[in-house]
Amino acid sequence: MLQLILGQLLNGIIVGSLYGIIALGVTLTFGLTGIVNFALGAFMMLGAYGTWYLYDVAHLPYPLAVVGAVLGVSAVGYVSDMLLFRFTRGNLVNGLLVSIGLISVFEALVLSAFTTTPKDLTYVLPGAFQVAGMFLPKIKLVVCAVFLVIIFGTYLALTRTWLGRAAFAYAQNPEAATLMGIRTERLQTIVVVYSTALAGLGGGLYASMYSIEPTIGTAYILKAVEAAILAGVGSVIGALGGGIILGVSENIGSVFFPSAFRDAYGLVFLIGILLVRPSGLFGDRL
């Protein structure tokens, strides 16, 4: 029993780090542009399909395929920002609806190109480590490690670099930041594109763990938004924390209670935390 719980605790952390990387995009975009980019789920799906295409069809090495997919997704993200998101800054509802419209467009494009049949990547790193009677799939550990590195890297970049501090300053107080000479528009574009790149990376690595379909983004963006809210919007490490809390509560919850209620375990947690701390677990901190 202990093994079962410990195993699911670890799995929850791994799954949670995937929620976390998308949640980080949600949090950053929301902090700087005031919109919740629901399309990040669709960007993740694009990243997954891009990786699949480059790796399984064009036969590039896996890391290169992921990098290629991330670059491709960022380019799409940049174009979307220039054409669409730029006009919804600060308007939550419009941003929400535009991103939902974008999801339909992306899904339809992928559907017509690759059909609804699921794709399953050739295994990148099969097998599992066996520790104390528990099996830990190698690929999941690697993916989790990459996510952690990226999230902590983002944290360092935000606190240690000029651009990062500018972004943080802007999220704290837009007017003051503009007065200090921060070029707001460019900053916002950078953050929007970076968020899509994170989603693309999430998707690229996702594809090495699970099979992919055009609809995979929906479930993950909801989790990511929950994670971001749970943590408190605006917190980088919190996004990871929120993701992990969700992942763990779902996995552990499913062990003790019916897994049909899986999604509810995280939600109950979310409601509970918001009632105690209305601005999220990690508040308005970085």
């Binding site: 195993g7 699911q8 699970y210 996995n251 552990i252 499913s254 897994s259 049909a260 899986r262």
Partner: peptide, 17 residues
């Protein structure tokens, strides 16, 4: 019998159980 929400991708918990 164990049921899961359609759209689930990680079955680790249900499988372990």
């Amino acid at each position: 019998v164990e049921l899961f929400e359609p759209g689930t991708k990680d079955f680790s918990a249900s499988l372990a159980k």
